[in-house]
Amino acid sequence: MVQHDEFEVWYTAEDFPDTFHRTGRMVFTVDALAHALFVTGRAPQDQAAYGWTSVYEWLHRVALIPAYVRRAPTGRLTRSDLARALDRSEKVALSYALGQAMTGVFSRQVVSVRFLMHVDRYAARYGIRFAANTRQRADLFGEREAGGWVVAEAKGRSGNIDDELKGTMRAQKRTIRSVGGAPPALAFGCAAHFPQYKGVPDHLKLHAVDPVEEELEAVDLPVDRDRFILAYYEPFLAALDAGKEEPVLDGYALASFGPFNVSVGILATVARRVRRARQGRLDHLYQDVVSILDTQLTTPGPNRFSDGTAVMSKWQQALDQDDWSSESDETYPDWWTGPDR
């Protein structure tokens, strides 16, 4: 049963290992979507050089949710009429952001990735340079809770996806040969799209592909786990510093962004450890943070996540607005609407 603050999105997983279901249903909150927009952002995180760039970028991205995202009565994620009326370049930007975020949701819910980051953000943070012929590379990488690196290529489309897009995802997801000296445990491409059935726009769906072939020009991504964790949490620290400080709640340090109706939090113990790492105590950061999460993190809730962070929004009124095109009376086939429809 989908709750009033939750979305339902169906996915298809093509060529994944047998341990994954061919089709599946993801249920997640609007705060989970906002969290995914946060961690998949690509803005530089060197606060000394760039100020609060990452915070402004994230606020811009999350503002897309109350502006353009709506919840249908069934719980399906759809677009507002305003989103459908955007010009082509604006639709591309919206699709790109949703593609990144939904890849983040899929990575967390289906692939069990606890830490996910944009490749360009990590590379920019530590001055990693790629060869000139490697511009086509996967977007995201992270680590599963059970161990093992994951590489993901994210795409977003405002209509149907085709074989050409699937081919592009197949190529780009395998452009990273290794992460930290080890081959990825899983590398996949993920496309979030609003398909059409008989000319009628449908709700958001996800299509993921995971073939095994590797590109000839694949690159190695040098990653140190301690520096990875530092780069992962820096945007959250920047948000705490940029927003209005709120009282600590259940062990979470919090900051709010009033006009945006959203708050960001992080376990105070994690925040303190990461701040010490920024001051020079980087050694063993990864193990220390994982130990904190394993011992202090309660069961993740609708706005608290397995990485020890929290995102809390107040967008229900906007999400429930009746300003989106109504569903068709067409009888959709089972493969279109999901096995339980």
Rank of each mutant, 00 (worst) to 15 (best):
T168S: 10
G167M: 15
K198P: 01
L249M: 06
D250K: 09
A187W: 02
R227V: 03
E217Y: 13
G251D: 12
V200R: 14
T168H: 14
P235Y: 13
V209W: 04
I176P: 00
G156D: 10
K166H: 09
G251E: 15
D241S: 09
V223H: 02
K205A: 13
L230A: 13
D210N: 12
P201V: 10
A152G: 05
D220S: 05
R227P: 00
I176H: 02
R227L: 11
V200F: 11
P235Q: 07
H203T: 11
K166P: 01
S158Y: 09
E246T: 09
I161T: 15
L249Y: 14
S178E: 09
L165F: 05
G243Y: 13
A192F: 11
G148W: 03
A182R: 08
V219S: 08
K173Q: 06
R177K: 11
A239M: 14
G148M: 13
G251F: 01
R170E: 14
R174Q: 15
L249W: 11
E215A: 14
P183Q: 04
K155F: 02
Y252M: 14
G148C: 10
N160V: 04
Q172R: 12
D210W: 04
L206M: 04
D224V: 07
D162Y: 09
A238Q: 15
P201N: 11
P195K: 06
L186R: 03
D162C: 12
H193E: 07
R174N: 11
R227C: 02
P211V: 15
G181V: 03
V200W: 14
A242R: 15
H207P: 01
D162V: 05
K155Q: 09
E217G: 09
